[in-house]
Amino acid sequence: MAKVLVVTSGKGGVGKTTSTAALGAALAQSGQNVVVVDFDVGLRNLDLVMGAERRVVFDLINVVQGDARLSQALIRDKRCETLSILPASQTRDKDALTSEGVARVMDELREKFDWVICDSPAGIERGAQLAMYHADMAVIVTNPEVSSVRDSDRIIGLLDSKTQKAEQGEKVEKHLLLTRYDPARAARKEMLSVEDVLEILSIPLLGIVPESEDVLKSSNVGAPVTLTAPTSLPARAYFEAARRLSGEKLEVSVPVEKRGFFDWLFKRDA
């Protein structure tokens, strides 16, 4: 039974696309069939972050409008054969996405894959609502920062009212992914802590992804961090998050580098 997961946040620039790619690659490496779908029509970037930008021939809108078959638009990742990407269109405007067309494509994707991961555009408009409409589960990507937390709260409200599940009186399973977290700054009370954000948003925590150079390095070379730097702290956080999405019960910890004196210092804080 395929799961449809939307990666959303309201606010832009918090790490939706990065997290979509990293979680998608992590789930695919566990042997499950995964497709990542870019819903950001006109501002597609998932292809670029995954290094597939030169392999795009057809896109989501072509498939929605019946100009191409799904199999023609899907791009299989070269490093991980269970991972595919369905790119968004860069040129057409988002009105070209019809609800019926998206519903048909989602049904088809559900048949082919174990996981359908939808990368939502920023904002709360039509594009974001289409991306979340078919979701069984949602990952709400949040930075420990006031505007991001406020927008996440808004998105949680939409997930509870504007999705197919909500219309049927069911609930979309919601998970918080805290990204760009700096444990040292949080300990100095310069940054909202994990506990603060959880208390405000009151949804379960999927993972804590620390601020890290490895994330930018990975997008520079066009690969999910879970493929290029699988032992790095952010990749480890994404791998654990992926296992939690698959139903494993793992305790969430603040990821810190294990080395000597600093290790000892951080352990006392955590």
């Binding site: 006031v146 709260d153 949080a186």
Partner: peptide, 19 residues
């Protein structure tokens, strides 16, 4: 300085209660 994260939390809680 020590308080800036708790200021953030308080502001958010009041704002979100309204919203």
């Amino acid at each position: 300085r020590q308080q800036s994260s708790s200021v953030a939390k308080d502001r958010l809680q009041i704002l979100l209660a309204h919203e």
